[in-house]
């Protein structure tokens, strides 16, 4: 895996570069550094001779020009001393090396932060975090939010009209009107010490506030946002977002080869090889799945079959072609059953 060429080096690369003790300049390689030092810091100003070290230059000055060298040319103010013998990277005191590395790292991160601020790209090497996704609301979602907002406003108005506090999201319905003490007061259970043979008929006056077990009907505001009107068709998009698709197979172990459960490549192939016409979507999806398009027999006008097959294969199965055996979203089967005369309960 080749590294992506970027305009800016890694921090490791920066730290490995040789650098000059006298002026803190860094270089591509050691040779360049040495020639820099010879030219800038160890060059005799009298004859132009380039020496290898400051000590060497000092001896040269003494012997050739009968002069004494007091400081290193072109050096930073605190690095002009002749007491330290420097050649390339050799002889640099450890604390100075540390200081230098510190500075490089700091500069690196500052520059990185600036780049991120400028480009908006995420920091490299931190791809684990959830990718930031621009949220685009579909018209249905916007409508739903509007409906929710309207419901909330209406609820607040209603509550205000009733003289009660407006409902706060997350609060349980009926809490404000509950005849029971607030939750922090604890639940009025009997203490464990209550004898089990409590005389029947006698109430629990301290523990149970009797009467009115539920708040008056209508006064309990729903804490959940109102649902949009429930006349959405079976494939409605206005319902809350689907939970992430999870590819469990269907409950009944399906016979292999049926496209609806194409969880393995074999099944995909088996499904793909059905005479399903030459739907371009199908071909694209198969190409994506790495499957060579099968030899299509004489294309049949079996459009429905082809559409079904492609939809299944795309694993974007939006339940367009599922039929719910029990599809009543309002009433449970038990309630329907209980409505039948033979289960009717005549209250005594």
């Amino acid at each position: 895996m080749g590294k992506k060429k970027r305009g800016h080096p890694d921090v490791e690369e920066l730290l490995s570069r040789p650098w000059c003790y006298y002026c803190e300049r860094d270089f591509e390689d050691l040779k360049l550094l040495i020639s820099h030092q010879k030219a800038k810091h160890f060059k005799c100003e009298r004859c132009g001779k380039r020496l290898n070290t400051a000590g060497g230059l000092s001896v040269h000055m003494n012997q050739v020009h009968k002069e004494s060298l007091s400081n290193v040319e072109n050096a930073l103010p605190n690095r002009q001393g002749l007491d330290i013998e420097i050649f390339g990277m050799e002889g640099v005191p450890e604390d100075i090396v540390q200081q230098h590395n510190q500075r490089i790292i700091q500069n690196y991160y500052t520059a990185q932060a600036e780049r991120h601020a400028a480009t908006g790209n995420p920091p490299s090497g931190q791809g684990h975090g959830p990718a930031k996704k621009i949220k685009i609301e579909t018209p249905e979602e916007i409508k739903k939010r509007l409906a929710e907002h309207k419901a909330r406003v209406a609820a607040q108005k209603a509550a205000a009209a009733n003289g009660t506090a407006p409902p706060v999201d997350g609060q349980s319905p009926g809490q404000g009107t509950s005849p029971f003490p607030p939750p922090q007061a604890g639940f009025p259970y009997p203490t464990p010490g209550v004898p089990p043979s409590f005389p029947p008929g006698q109430a629990y006056p301290p523990a149970y506030p009797s009467g009115g077990p539920s708040p008056p009907p209508g006064a309990a505001p729903f804490s959940l946002p109102a649902r949009p009107p429930n006349n959405v068709p079976a494939v409605g998009g206005a319902l809350p977002q689907r939970p992430p698709y999870y590819p469990y197979g269907p409950g009944g172990a399906p016979p292999p080869g049926l496209p609806g459960t194409a969880s393995t490549v074999d099944e995909l192939v088996a499904g793909a090889s059905r005479p399903g016409g030459d739907d371009i979507d199908q071909l694209i999806r198969m190409a994506e799945a790495g499957i060579k398009p099968p030899k299509t027999e004489t294309p049949q006008p079996d459009d429905a079959g082809a559409v079904a097959a492609t939809e299944k294969k795309g694993r974007k199965d939006k339940e367009k072609n599922t039929r719910m055996v029990y599809a009543d979203s309002e009433v449970s089967p038990e309630e329907r059953m209980a409505m039948m005369p033979r289960y009717a309960f005549a209250s005594a």
């Binding site: 399906p254 079959g305 079904a308 299944k312 039929r323 719910m324 055996v325 029990y326």
Partner: peptide
């Protein structure tokens, strides 16, 4: 298992 293009869900 899907029958044709319909899957019965229970």
């Amino acid at each position: 298992a899907p029958q044709g293009n319909v899957t019965n869900v229970h």
